[in-house]
Simulated scan of single mutants.
Amino acid sequence: MSTPAPESRPLLLLVDDTPANLALLHGMLKHDYRLRIANGGQFALQLAQQQPLPDLILLDVMMPEIDGLSVCRQLKQMALTAEIPVIFLSGKTQEADEINGLAAGAVDYIHKPLSPAIVEARVRSQLELQAMRRALKMHNQLLEERVQQRTQELVKMQDATIMAMGVMAELRDEETGMHLKRTQEYVRLLAQQVASHPRFAAELGPRQIEWMAKSAPLHDIGKVGIPDAILHKPARLTVEEFAVMQRHPTLGRDIILEVERIVGEESDFLRYAREIAYGHQEKWDGTGYPQGLAGEAIPLSARLMALADVYDALISRRVYKPPFSHEMAVKIIHDGRGTHFDPDLVDGFLRVATEFQAIAEQYCDPEDPPLADIALAGVR
C-alpha cells in the first residue's frame, strides 16, 4: 500500500503545557500525521483557527491560565472550530473527570501516562468517524440540493398546469390575452399591500398570499361551460343569456370540487381556487352573483380577485367595448368602494394603483396601445 503524500495526511493539533508530553506525542504521531503544536490554551485557540483547520485536537486538561475544559468550550462556541473533534489527555482518572470532559464537548478521554497504542487507536478511530460525518454531511447537502431542485421543478410544473387550465377557459374568450397573468399579479400585489391591515393580517401570511396568487388564473375556468354564442356575443346580453353567463362561477366551483374529489383530499390551493372561482362575481353590498353574498361573507380571496378582475376588464379591449384609461378605471373602482368592493381593499388599491398600471403595461396584449396612450376623451 502506498504511503499518503505528506500534504494529504490528516492534521492534528497537539496541546500540552509540558514539553515532555509534547515530545512523546510528536514521536507517536509524526509518521502518520501532520502536526501543529501549542504549549498553552490561548495559543491553541489561535492555532485551531488557522487554515488549514486541524482535523483533530489532542488537548491536555490541566494547564495554567486557561485549562483544557475552557479551551474546549470556546472551540465549540466558535462556528469555525465547532465541528473539530477534541480528545482530552489527562492524569485525572475519576469518572466525574471524564464526564466533565465529555460535557465540555470532547469526543474521547485518554488517561495519562499515555500508551502509544491507545493514543494511535483512538486518534485513528476519531478521524474515521470525522471522515464519515463529513461524508454524511456532504451526502445530506447533495440530497437537499436535489430535493430543492426537484421541488422547484414540481412547482414550475404545477404553475404551468394551473396556467394551462386557466388558458383552456380563456381560449374560449379570444380577447382576454394576458388577462390571466395580469390578474395573478394584481392579486399578489393587492394582498401584499393590505396584509398588515388588522382585518386581513390573520389571513394574509406569505404562504396564503402565494396560494391565492397561484389560484387566480382559475377564476374563470367555469367559462368552459358557457356556449360560444353567449361568450362571444358583441352586443349586450339578453336577460336569458345573462342568466346563462351567471352560471360560470358555479361551473368553476364544481370543476374544482371534482378535482378535489379525484385528488382525494383538500388543499389550501384548491380551496382558494374554489373560493375565487365561485365568489369573484359577488359584490360587497350583496348585489352580485351567484349567491348574493355580502360583506365579509364573501371569502377574502374572492374579494381580492373581484377588484383585480374588474380593473383588468376596464383597461382591456373587449368585443363590447374599447379599453378604458387607467385613470377612468381607478375612478370607477373608487366609486365602487363599499358597494361593489370591500372598502379597505379599495383603499389598498388606491395606494398601489400606479403599480397596477405598471403590471398592466408589462403584460399588455400585443394589439392594445399602452395605457398612457388611451385618452380619456376616447373612452365611451
Rank of each mutant, 00 (worst) to 15 (best):
D335K: 08
I221N: 02
R9I: 04
Q51W: 08
H280K: 03
S90V: 05
Q184R: 15
A229G: 13
D67T: 01
G166V: 04
N140Y: 12
A82S: 12
I66H: 04
P116F: 14
N39K: 11
A121E: 12
P116A: 13
Y311Q: 00
I110Y: 01
A103W: 04
G40I: 02
V194T: 00
V71Y: 07
A213Q: 07
I84G: 00
Q74R: 15
L204Y: 04
Q246C: 14
T151A: 13
A213G: 04
S196D: 15
I298Y: 11
I226Y: 06
T287V: 04
S70E: 15
I66W: 06
I87R: 00
D268A: 15
G264A: 04
D342C: 09
D365C: 13
T339H: 10
A106G: 07
A20M: 09
D97W: 08
D268R: 10
R172K: 15
L75I: 06
S70C: 10
E327P: 06
A297Y: 03
M63K: 03
I87Q: 01
E240P: 01
I118C: 07
L25A: 02
L304I: 06
Y109S: 04
E296N: 10
L251K: 01
F356K: 04
Q51V: 13
E145W: 14
R172E: 12
L251P: 03
P19Y: 03
E95R: 13
D285V: 05
P343H: 04
E95G: 02
R253D: 07
T176D: 00
K321H: 12
Q42M: 12
V123M: 08
G101M: 04
Y33G: 01
I332F: 13
Q77F: 02
E203H: 13
Y320G: 00
E241M: 09
A5G: 03
L59F: 05
R380K: 12
D309V: 07
R133V: 07
A117D: 15
L350F: 11
A273W: 05
L231P: 00
Q94G: 08
S267N: 02
F349V: 08
G222P: 02
L270I: 07
S215Y: 04
R133L: 14
T176F: 08
D55Q: 13
T18R: 15
K321Q: 11
K283D: 00
A164T: 10
K321C: 10
G336I: 10
M245I: 09
Y33M: 01
D16M: 04
D268P: 09
M78H: 15
L204S: 02
I262K: 11
P113I: 06
A131P: 03
G225E: 11
E83W: 07
A213V: 08
Q158T: 09
V119F: 08
E265S: 12
L180C: 06
R182S: 05
Q42W: 05
P323R: 05
L22E: 04
V155S: 11
K76T: 03
P343Q: 04
Q148T: 05
G68V: 03
N100E: 11
V259T: 03
P249L: 01
G68W: 02
Q158Y: 06
